[in-house]
């Protein structure tokens, strides 16, 4: 077969209407594209695709050290009827629905303001918003645990000063998830902000100048020029932060252990417990596959919503 290929391609012009041959010709013409992505493809095949395929297979198996046993859809049946998985899905979805738009909108607004500042001031703000991210998530969660402590924490201390509280931040199933979200909301999305600022750098000045001549207001310019041209970045952030939010783990692990009750149990926290406490990697894989499908669905939606072929 490979031997037959070159004459085929050579005579491709003659058989140009054959779609198979056309593709071959195109592949040959674009060989550089394949060369450029070859290292990445090799790495992904070896270190991502193989493990991912294995965990997909495990989702249909019962994990046994002596050799996995195919169990069909049993794992999925168990997971989908497990009320704890339902609760974890609800918590995770609620978290994502709040956090993803919040992070993107806030980052967009802050970046839009910051870009008007001088270089030096801008760099100060970038640092202030971004650098808190250098601390490890575990340590940050521990700081927040101290802030939320029901009896001696900072928040209840401040509330008691104005005669309010004590408020059961993490110690009530009705408020605990909200408190974990609040922690994410109060920390500005620094990474998003610097990415938006970098993307804004690329928007050509003359577009705004043309708009100025037309007498457009700043808000109009923002809406009609800045926003559409940032769409690729917004798409990136929407997809990446959706994946990140759906996979939230550390806060639940460090601050609440998924409690009280199951009020802060997230899907990945549950997967972690299923895999590393119960040693049921098949069940954990089934949970992961369901989460995967949900993330893919949301990402496709995001892609439809934000995808454009913009070019300045």
């Amino acid at each position: 077969m490979p031997g037959a290929m070159s004459p085929t391609v050579a005579s491709a012009r003659r058989y140009g209407r054959n779609p198979y041959l056309q593709t071959l010709r195109l592949i040959r013409k674009k060989k550089w594209a394949y060369v450029f992505i070859a290292p990445d493809i090799l790495l992904f095949l070896g270190f991502i695709v193989v493990p991912v395929v294995r965990s997909f297979m495990l989702a249909f198996q019962e994990f046994r050290l002596s050799g996995n046993v195919w169990v069909g859809l049993d794992n999925f049946k168990y997971v989908l009827t497990d009320p704890v998985f339902g609760a974890a899905m609800r918590n995770t979805a609620l978290y994502t629905v709040v956090m993803v738009p919040q992070n993107i909108i806030v980052a967009l607004l802050l970046a839009s303001i910051l870009r008007h500042l001088s270089e030096r001031t801008q760099s100060l703000f970038r640092a202030a918003y971004y650098l808190p991210g250098v601390a490890s998530a575990v340590v940050i969660s521990m700081v927040w645990k101290w802030i939320y402590d029901p009896n001696f924490g900072l928040f209840n201390f401040l509330l008691s000063r104005i005669g309010l509280g004590p408020y059961p931040w993490l110690t009530s199933p009705r408020t605990s998830l909200f408190s974990i979200m609040l922690m994410g909301i109060l920390a500005a999305p620094g990474g998003f902000i610097i990415l938006y600022l970098a993307a804004m750098k690329k928007i050509p000045r003359d577009l705004y100048e043309v708009a100025d001549i037309d007498g457009a207001t700043p808000i109009r310019k923002w809406w009609n020029i800045t926003l559409p041209l940032l769409k690729p970045t917004t798409l990136y952030l929407a997809i990446v932060s959706t994946i990140g939010s759906f996979q939230i783990f550390t806060a639940a692990y460090v601050m609440t252990q998924g409690g009280p009750g199951y009020s802060t149990t997230t899907v990945v926290y549950l997967i972690y417990n299923t895999a590393f406490r119960d040693f049921e990697f098949g069940l954990a894989s089934a949970q992961a596959v369901i989460l995967f499908l949900v993330i893919v669905a949301v990402s496709v939606f995001n892609f439809r919503r934000f995808s454009t072929d913009v070019q300045y």
Partner: peptide, 16 residues
Amino acid sequence: ALPGAGGMTTVDVHNA
């Protein structure tokens, strides 16, 4: 007893 017993972790008790 320290309120919030159902919502604390052992770290909280150790710290207290």
